[in-house]
Each structure stands twice: as C-alpha cells, then as structure tokens.
C-alpha cells in the first residue's frame, strides 16, 4: 500500500470470466439471438434498454419525497397509495405496487429484500451491491440497529426501528424526515438533500 503511489483508482482488474457459461447465461443468449433473428427487436434495442437502466438513479425518488415534504395533500396521498401518487407526478412504478413508509420522531424505517434484491428501480435506479449482499439481507432483519450503526446511523432507543421485508409484490420507499433549517426551500433544492441511501432507510438526508 505505502510502497507505490495510488492515483485515484483501484488497481484490481475485473474478473476475466474465463469459466464456461452457466445454464441461464446460455439460455439468455439463445433467446436473445432468436428474438433478434425473428425481428422482434434489434441488438441496438437491447443495448439501449440496458443503457437506460444503467443511467437511472434516485432522482425520481428524491422528487417524490420533496413533493411529500412541501405538499401535505400529496404526502397523504403518497402514504395511502404510493403507486397512484407517483402516477400523479408522471412516474410509472411498473408492475409492482409502491408503499411509502414515513420516518417520524418516533419511527425509523429501513427496507430490505431478504429473498433476492427487490427494489423500487423506477424510483431509485439499480440497487447498490451491498443491498444485494447476503450480509445486508440476513443481518438487517436480525440486528437492524447494529447494521444502521455501521452505516453511521445511530437510532435512539426511544425510536422504533421498523424493518420492511419486500418478499412479494410490494416495493418500498422511505420518506425521510425533512431536515431542520430548510423552511421555505424550493422542491429542487430539497430534492438535492435526499440521498439514495436515505430512501432505503440506512441513513438520513443530508443537512442543509
């Protein structure tokens, strides 16, 4: 580490993936090639769909929260029917349904999918690697307060920690508490305080 100069990037190369294709990799390639051959879609359509997915971030999620912070009617609608409230902003949640859970002075919420990696991708983009890790999935239901502390988030004992396990058709977004000192702020400015991790519930928004 100390013997040579690091210049801002990790020197470990990505794995070469020299092993044989797995069953599902082979099947994906075969189905994709057949669909292209039959003219259902082109290779560029596949590329573009991946590019769109990769480019998505948590901007839509932050926008939803900024609306909830500034519009009491929207907040109420969001907590009652997350999917419907997002549609009002022109945000399509996809085939699953959205449940928004609100942090208060008495409750802190945190989201997990213990079975795989269910995540509100249309609002938050692709899930971070740690969200998909076995360590997070198994530990946050078992010792959520210890996991939150590792993310730098200490929850006092008089605040209830509520874990939500996305095991089926619902997807979740945390509505964090609005930071103090942001009275009168415009939505765009508020949205910039809402980080991806605060929407999962492992931390709180940035301070102004």
């Amino acid at each position: 580490m100390a013997t040579h100069d690091h210049h801002g990037h990790d020197h470990a190369p990505p794995p070469d993936e020299d092993g044989p294709l797995t069953y599902y990799q082979t099947m994906e390639i075969a189905v994709r090639e057949l669909l292209i051959e039959k003219g259902i879609f082109g290779a560029d359509d596949v590329r573009r769909a991946i590019e769109t997915m990769d480019a998505r971030d948590h901007a839509a999620g932050a926008e939803v929260v900024a609306h909830a912070w500034t519009d009491p009617d929207f907040r109420e609608a969001l907590l009652a029917d997350g999917t419907g409230a997002c549609a009002r902003l022109g945000i399509d949640i996809g085939p699953t349904r959205l449940i928004a859970v609100e942090n208060t002075a008495a409750v802190h919420n945190v989201i997990v999918c213990t079975l795989c990696s269910c995540y509100p991708r249309n609002l938050l983009g692709l899930p971070p690697d740690w969200y998909k890790s076995r360590a997070y999935r198994s530990r946050v239901v078992r010792e959520p307060r210890a996991v939150l502390r590792e993310f730098g988030t200490a929850i006092p004992d008089d605040v209830t920690v509520r874990v939500h396990d996305s095991t089926a058709d619902m997807r979740y977004i945390v509505v964090p508490r609005r930071p103090a000192g942001t009275e009168g702020w415009a939505r765009e400015r508020l949205a910039a305080l809402v980080t991806r991790d605060s929407l999962i519930g492992v931390t709180v928004p940035k301070n102004p």
């Binding site: 004992d157 209830t160 509520r162 874990v163 396990d165 996305s166 089926a168």
Partner: peptide, 14 residues
C-alpha cells in the same frame, strides 16, 4: 433480539 421491545418487521405473506 438486541433492541427495544417495540422494534418490528413487516413481511408480505400470501
């Protein structure tokens, strides 16, 4: 469980 007795988990079940 190492935490206050009010802590909960919500799970979707058929």
């Amino acid at each position: 469980y190492d935490g206050p007795p009010g802590d909960t988990i919500d799970i979707e079940l058929y």
